[in-house]
């Protein structure tokens, strides 16, 4: 197991959690050190982006740039989702040098749903299942060659996925 591997950090996080909050405060230097190490490994969880309530703020927190709509980003989403708790969305793109793909739902309380990092050699295509509170635009962002592209589609929801 290499020191930069995700399981190292997973284990380390576990150990840190196990020490307890009081100890964490006591060893203030340790939790400070962890995010830096994570960033170095390009493994940092984008905590701030997952707190944002609007798509513009989430995109800014995640990428720090503005997307441009592209017909090279193909989203496969239902016109109508009967169950907002499970909405299958898939995306493929013909763009080259894709480094990340993210999914946002405009009307969800937290707009960012999922963000995937695509290392070289991994195909720029992802399928997943997301929750939708109500009828909303679904936005897919594709970061390719340092630029940000998007595709948007409205999905009508008959039964919301966030109301229980």
């Amino acid at each position: 197991m290499s020191i930069m591997s995700p399981e190292f950090f997973a284990n380390r996080r576990l150990v840190l959690k196990g020490i307890g909050v009081a100890a964490l405060v006591g060893f203030g230097v340790i939790p400070l050190d962890v995010p830096q190490a994570l960033a170095a490994a390009n493994d940092k969880y984008p905590e701030e982006a997952f707190k944002q309530k609007t798509e513009a703020e989430a995109i800014k927190a995640l990428y720090g740039k503005t997307p441009e709509a592209s017909d090279k980003v193909k989203m496969d989403a239902p016109e109508i989702a009967e169950n907002g708790a499970v909405v299958p969305i898939a995306v493929t793109t013909t763009l080259a040098d894709v480094t990340s793909i993210s999914f946002l739902v405009s009307e969800n309380p937290i707009t960012l749903v999922a963000s995937y990092r695509i290392p070289a050699g991994t195909l720029p295509a992802v399928g997943n299942r997301i929750k939708m509170a109500k009828t909303s635009n679904v936005i897919v962002l594709v970061e390719a060659g340092g630029k940000l592209y998007s595709a948007t589609k409205e999905v009508k929801v008959t039964v919301g996925g966030c109301g229980g």
């Binding site: 739902v105 749903v113 995937y116 929750k131």
Partner: peptide, 11 residues
């Protein structure tokens, strides 16, 4: 080969 960052909006 693939890294996912997820929020509570994933099913």
């Amino acid at each position: 080969v693939f890294l996912a960052d997820w929020g509570g909006g994933v099913s």
